[in-house]
Design a protein around this nucleic acid. Structure first.
Lengths: 275, 275
DNA sequence: TGCTTTATGTGCGCTACCGTACCGACTGCG
DNA sequence: CGCAGTCGGTACGGTAGCGCACATAAAGCA
């Protein structure tokens, strides 16, 4: 699970923003790990032993209801960190973090993160302390906007928002995920997603195969999405938190050829379906 | 607007938790102010000149959509602070903060808050820095749970949650608010609220007059509410953030006789209806 | 007092999404 | 290859909440 310390380094936005001194202190302790689809980073109430800085993976923060039905609170990729409760002081969270898209992440022992977080002398600009809090503020906006979107917008608009937010965390224009999982994330029926995807396909915005969605027309998606996507994206840019992959004005589609395709999609996803 | 520095002091949970040293540094700069219904504390993008520590008022964080329709993201009372963006580093937020229930709050110049926040030596336990971050984590849970609730639960359940959360921020069992405003907060039709309130009245859980809701049976409300209320409340208690008014196990109803009734309900509320 | 404003209650057709059921198609595995 | 398991498409009745249009009632004001 643990790979070279050098490979792929510097792909997480928070790590990229560290001062030289901080980076030198932390980098020896950063371990690059692969996070497989369905891996649970923490459960409600779990004390974290590590914080994770995703580079190519995407992790969902899910609330799992008493009924067992999950709902996505927020998604975290190479723009952020998993383990906010560590430095925010709560220690744990009442939700679950689960890997939604295979990929790499750097992990750092909780204690070391805290040590660096609390180090901060007088000046804080550009420090880890500063970046982590700014990221957390961005997270608040993402969560809040999800709430608004849940209430007010049509499912196909929500799907556009969700696709775009996911896409911004990925290096290609392909999303490896089943409709059932999307339904879980958005907290709706699987059939509803089928219908919404059908609409987007008819509009030539996306193209689908089993467990794979290819975005054909990103600007078209943005146009069709509700305001929520832009609100979140603009706020992240303002906070200097935008993902390394997030395109701003112009957009040139990339074809990865599915480099990080999941080996065993089905078996892994079984774990994610329920509590 | 500015009242005695001593009157009513020590009713905000964050201020109450400060160390003696911190309290001594800050208290000379805390101004007790009345926040009237409908007062806008900040608009999206506004740089804050003051942070506010509510004691008896309730402030809503609203997102105002492009259509002009508002939706409540979170509510803040004597358990928290208005002005999270100050210490989180973003400076501004993409939402609006508006007073939903008249009352008092302590205000503190932004610069002084930041100064104290950044002071923190090695030990942080029990400091303002610590409390503010822990509160912010609680806020995240509240926002996230609102999102889940929006998606999954019936309107009358959501109303129960909302009533209970509001009640926990108030010293009596009376809520001074119109159905129209509740509808705005929950992001639904006014008629929907009328219907939901009707159900709760039939169940003898509440009693209503124009612009006034009296809670008759709190345990009944809790039973009828969805899990979301308990999740938020439990998390706030775990983080030592519970409002001074929030009852835990046992509950004895209080009759204030409507001490802080709004003088001109209607005119004020006109401002809140739209963008 | 009577008039105006504002809050609340009610009815009715509409629709986005739900719950359920079922079927075909793709994929991975022996 | 053929089978089993999973994924995706479709259909259909049900319903929570919407949009609209009024009616009623309570509070404020002159």
């Amino acid at each position: 699970m643990i790979e070279s310390h050098k490979l792929n380094l510097g792909q997480n936005h928070i790590l990229d923003s560290l001062s030289v001194a901080e980076y030198q202190r932390l980098s020896p302790h950063l371990e690059l790990v692969v996070l497989p689809l369905g891996e649970i980073i923490y459960e409600p109430g779990d004390e974290l032993r590590y914080a994770y800085f995703p580079t190519t993976c995407i992790v969902s923060m899910l609330y799992v209801m008493e009924s067992g039905a999950p709902a996505e609170i927020a998604m975290v990729g190479n723009d952020g960190i998993i383990g906010v409760s560590l430095f925010m002081g709560g220690g744990t969270m009442p939700n679950r973090a689960v890997v939604r898209s295979v990929g790499y992440a750097y992990r750092l022992r909780a204690q070391l993160l805290l040590q660096e977080f609390n180090r901060a002398g007088g000046v804080r600009n550009g420090t880890l302390h500063d970046m982590l809090l700014r990221y957390t503020q961005g997270l608040i906006t993402q969560i809040a906007q999800t709430s608004v979107c849940n209430r007010h917008h049509f499912l196909d608009q929500q799907l556009c928002r969700w696709l775009l937010l996911s896409l911004d965390l990925l290096p290609s224009n392909e999303l490896i995920i089943t409709q059932e999982l999307i339904a879980n994330m958005l907290g709706v029926r699987r059939e509803g997603i089928t219908e919404a995807i059908g609409k987007l396909q008819k509009a030539k915005l996306i193209e689908c195969r089993r467990g794979l969605i290819t975005v054909l027309d990103r600007p078209g998606l943005e146009e069709r999405a509700c305001e929520c996507y832009q609100v979140v994206k603009t706020e992240f840019e303002r906070l200097h938190l935008a993902s390394r992959y997030a395109p701003s004005a112009s957009y040139i589609p990339i074809h990865s050829g599915g480099l990080l395709r999941n080996e065993s999609l089905s078996s892994r996803q079984a774990r994610m379906k329920q509590g």
